[in-house]
């Protein structure tokens, strides 16, 4: 297990270099002089020069990248141009909101998606299967911002059960996580169904049935256990969808999370903030994928030995 873990952690290095390089190039690739854009058309040469020094864009690119990565290791993601505060502080202030929202949505997604997927796969081509897959298809096709607005209209305007915005209390998270979780559960349901159906047709399931194992055990013990790996993979990938969806959901529900921070930063052209938040979210996503990979070896011990 420890060799597997080390190997997997080593794999992480090139990905993280790539992620930092991309975040770095993001600002370097801005057409024209970023300092001039930030300072505005009417800024004097001195003002532009100050911003240029702040960003360090006079130096060659590779030097800029090295100092950028060194700063990341020191916990310095730059200074927000809008608030003049360290970007990392701004992100950490908003991170709990985004984390709670994504985790709650993940729970909603897993419960709804798995139940719908299993319900479909255990009776393929039945009415139950068709209805559940049709609902999933609608879920996949529904824009998450529209679903958010409709939920606000229904559950906070017509039926005043939940607040329509904010992020200070638990009740603020109910509607957004339902919206985000439900909209992501469609894909999970479809993929759970196809993963289970693939396993159901394999020999060992037929053997289990032939030797008289009860249907309940065939599904839960033999099939579902083996379908876990593709399902966990999908859940991991869907976490990325949730992080992306959080950007929209936080905006619709006026929540003070990283997603909304990114949107505001783009509107204000606050490059260090954009760069920092994108780096932060992608690093989290990369770590989640790592956790998913590591969980394979717990679910299926063969993977440890093969590697």
């Amino acid at each position: 297990m420890s060799i597997y873990l080390v190997k997997r952690l080593l794999h992480l290095i090139p990905t993280l270099i790539g992620v930092t390089l991309f975040a770095f190039l993001l600002v370097a690739a801005v057409p024209g002089d970023p300092a001039q854009i930030i300072a505005g058309e009417s800024a004097s040469e001195e003002e532009v020069q100050i911003i240029r020094d702040q960003l360090g864009i006079d130096k060659p690119l590779y030097q800029q990248y090295i100092s950028y990565v060194t700063n990341i290791f020191k916990g310095d993601l730059g200074t927000s141009l809008r608030s003049s505060k360290p970007v990392l502080d701004e992100i950490l202030l908003r991170f709990p909101t985004t984390l709670i929202l994504t985790v709650m949505s993940l729970v909603v997604m897993i419960i709804v998606g798995l139940i719908a997927g299993i319900a479909s796969a255990t009776k393929p081509n039945s009415i139950r299967d068709n209805v559940s897959m049709m609902i999933s298809l609608f879920g996949i096709s529904m824009p998450v911002f529209w679903m958010g607005i409709m939920f606000i209209l229904l559950f906070s305007y017509y039926l005043p059960w939940f607040p329509s915005g904010g992020s200070s209390e638990f009740k603020h998270f109910v509607l957004p996580s339902l919206v985000l979780g439900l909209s992501a559960s469609g894909i999970l349901a479809r993929l759970t169904r196809s993963s289970i159906l693939e396993i159901v047709n394999q020999d060992f399931v037929r053997t289990a049935r032939a030797k008289g194992v009860k249907e309940k055990y065939v599904i839960y013990k033999h099939t579902l256990k083996n379908a876990l790996i593709p399902i966990i993979t999908i859940v991991g990938m869907e976490f990325g969808v949730l992080l992306g969806g959080a950007v929209i959901t936080e905006t619709v529900f006026s929540m003070n999370g990283i997603g909304r921070y990114v949107v505001e930063s783009i509107q204000f052209r606050d490059f260090p903030a954009i760069q920092g938040s994108i780096l932060f979210i992608s690093t989290i996503f990369v770590l989640v994928i790592l956790l998913v990979d590591l969980s394979y070896s717990i679910v299926d011990p063969r993977i440890r030995y093969e590697n």
Binding site: G18, V19, F22, G240, V247, V262, I266, I274, I278
Partner: peptide
Amino acid sequence: MRIMDILLAFPGFLLALAIISILGP
């Protein structure tokens, strides 16, 4: 494929946002 992996390391919608932030809306 390594370059593709790096692109996949960004949640899709966020990648689109990042590109828009460089190119302008």
